[in-house]
């Protein structure tokens, strides 16, 4: 009974981690942008959902229909205006990585500053779908379950899209070798921009869903950036299935440790697992070995 309860709670928490990390996986894995302003994207979407819900009475699920396209557009613009010049001048992948870290580090402060101006530093929270759902005698909050559901659906759908469709193959080609992809008539810039924007839309989905049960303010974006980074690196950069599995492993670890060992050791356990996996598979769980 306790085992079942802890397992379900862990899966739900892990689902949230995976959900929040999916977008970074696309942005880093395909578009090659190490986006440090990633967590800020989560919070912007959370604020948008909060605002739609409290001011407009629009429920966050419908809110997704507005927020996701907007996030796609905004991220596409960011890529086109701010990041394309970096992509153009970068000769090597390593150089683009360093440049994008610096550029998005700046972006982080711009976005955070704008949120502080708009909302101040106070905490925000609203209640949506905070109702118990009973699964095999275990009670779980409906909103958290929903986040897990979204993570699974989005993760699997994207995985299938990437592996089974023509466009997906083009995206993977860009992820593996941008130069060679260009040689076989793939518009690398467009694909990368679209991947980055799609990643941004996924971040927003994570933000909206997370805002239903977490209390947030303009300053906590970095928490999500950190968690997403761990999940992405642990799962293997660019691999969505790995991202899903890594998220779930982290969630289960945290919940098991909190239940049977000590809640104070959850963070230590998270990093221990992270370290252990990287020692055994430096390329991440599902990552391809670097050449």
């Amino acid at each position: 009974m306790i085992l079942l309860e802890a397992t379900l709670a862990g899966l739900v928490l892990g689902g949230m981690y995976a959900l929040v990390a999916l977008g970074l996986n696309l942005q880093y894995g395909v578009a090659r942008i190490m986006n440090l302003a990633y967590g800020e994207g989560v919070i912007v979407a959370a604020f948008a959902a909060w605002w739609l819900y409290t001011a407009g009475g629009i429920n966050p699920i419908f809110g997704l229909a507005l927020i996701l396209p907007a996030a796609f557009a905004v991220n596409w613009l960011i890529y086109r205006l701010a990041l394309t010049p970096l992509v153009r001048r970068a000769k090597l992948r390593e150089q683009l990585e360093v440049d994008s870290i610096l550029a998005t580090f700046g972006l982080l402060f711009v976005v955070q500053g704008l949120m502080l101006v708009a909302f101040g530093g106070a905490y925000y929270s609203y209640g949506f779908l905070s109702v118990p759902v009973v699964i095999a005698d275990v009670t779980i909050a409906a909103n958290r379950l929903l986040a897990l559901g979204f993570a699974l659906v989005l993760g699997l759908a994207l995985y299938l899209a990437l592996t089974r469709t023509r466009i997906g193959t083009a995206v993977r080609a860009v992820a593996v070798d941008p130069v060679a992809a260009g040689l076989v008539a793939i518009d690398v810039r467009q694909v990368a921009a679209a991947s980055f924007a799609l990643g941004g839309a996924l971040v927003a989905a994570g933000g909206v869903l997370v805002s239903m049960f977490l209390t947030f303010n303009a300053n906590i974006g970095v928490v999500f950036t950190m968690k997403a980074l761990i999940v992405v690196i642990m799962g293997g950069v660019g691999n969505l299935l790995g991202c899903l599995v890594a998220g779930l492993i982290l969630g289960l670890t945290e919940t098991f440790v909190a239940t049977w060992v000590d809640p104070g050791l959850t963070l230590a356990a998270t990093y221990a697992i992270f370290l252990a996996i990287l020692l055994v598979r430096p390329q991440g769980l599902f990552g391809r070995a670097a050449r």
């Binding site: 709670a9 958290r144 919940t255």
Partner: peptide, 8 residues
């Protein structure tokens, strides 16, 4: 981010 084990 999840306090449900403690509540349980």
């Amino acid at each position: 981010q999840d306090l449900s084990p403690l509540i349980a």
